[in-house]
Amino acid sequence: MRKFQFFLLVECILLALGMMTILANDLSSFILILVLILLALRFYNQDTRNNFLLTVSLLLLFLIFMLNPYIIAAAVLGVVYVVINHFSQVKKKNRYAFIRFREDDFEVRPSRNQWIGAANYESDFYAFDDVNIVRVSGSDTFDLTNVIVTGKDNLIVIRKVLGPTKILVPVDVAVKLDVSTIYGTVTYFDCEPYDLRNESIKLWRQEDRKAIKSVKVVINTVAGDVEVVRQ
């Protein structure tokens, strides 16, 4: 509550300073008084004879408000406060949800997305866990050589704007690759590189259907090369 009261105080100060600077200008004061008079006339007479003049006056008054630095600062502060307050409410809601998950005996492992920069995803001994990543840009390397892969329901989903992606796969794991990009090159094991230009491609081997262990890799990018290699 104190944060909200402080926010209101700052907003009132900025708006007051904005109104003072607007009233200090003769033209701005005239337009403001004209708008108030037209609004009062319309309210008491309930007619539409002054609609055009009222519309033009309101438009000029809006432009005057938007050109005032104090009004702009108040608007920006309001947007920033709403965004910050929204994120804090989301975090509070997520904490309650996390507690409920634990009460219901769910295993929950939330993690933040790294939007920019190079990233390596590897493990020394852990069992494979599905991967779902959203990125803006960066180089990604997924090393599955030391991960215990079992079954065929293993999934890696990568969505990003820009950057190469490399998947290191052990010899006993089959890979079904699904790539969609506007500009990039796909290298699937020892096959010839395939250039994609606003296309999608799915790659897998017929003998992979008999494989005991497999991973499905889905990659959606705007621009970036994709490479799947044995390690």
Rank of each mutant, 00 (worst) to 15 (best):
F4G: 07
S88T: 02
L168Q: 08
V218K: 13
A223C: 14
I31C: 12
F189W: 04
K213M: 09
I13S: 01
Y96R: 08
Q46N: 15
F52H: 14
A118K: 14
G151E: 15
W115K: 06
N198V: 10
R42K: 15
V134N: 09
T141I: 13
G138D: 03
T221P: 04
L53I: 11
N68A: 00
P170H: 00
T187M: 06
R197W: 09
D225C: 04
L27V: 05
A24D: 09
R135E: 05
F4D: 13
D178N: 09
K152P: 03
K213T: 12
T185L: 05
Y126S: 02
V90M: 10
L41T: 01
G224I: 01
L60W: 00
L59W: 04
F43C: 05
A24L: 07
Y183I: 08
C12V: 07
I219K: 10
E103P: 01
Q231L: 03
I31M: 07
I148R: 13
L63R: 08
F98A: 07
N132V: 08
Q231A: 12
C191F: 01
R209D: 02
T187K: 12
L61N: 13
G117H: 12
I71R: 03
E11T: 07
R102H: 06
N85K: 15
Q89V: 01
V131L: 11
V136H: 00
T48Q: 08
L59Y: 09
R205Q: 00
G163Y: 07
E122L: 09
L39Q: 14
Q46R: 15
T185M: 07
D104P: 00
R230H: 05
M66F: 14
I148N: 13
N68F: 04
L67W: 10
V35T: 15
V179Y: 15
L60C: 14
F43H: 08
T48R: 15
D195L: 04
V228A: 00
E227A: 06
S88L: 15
M1N: 03
E192C: 05
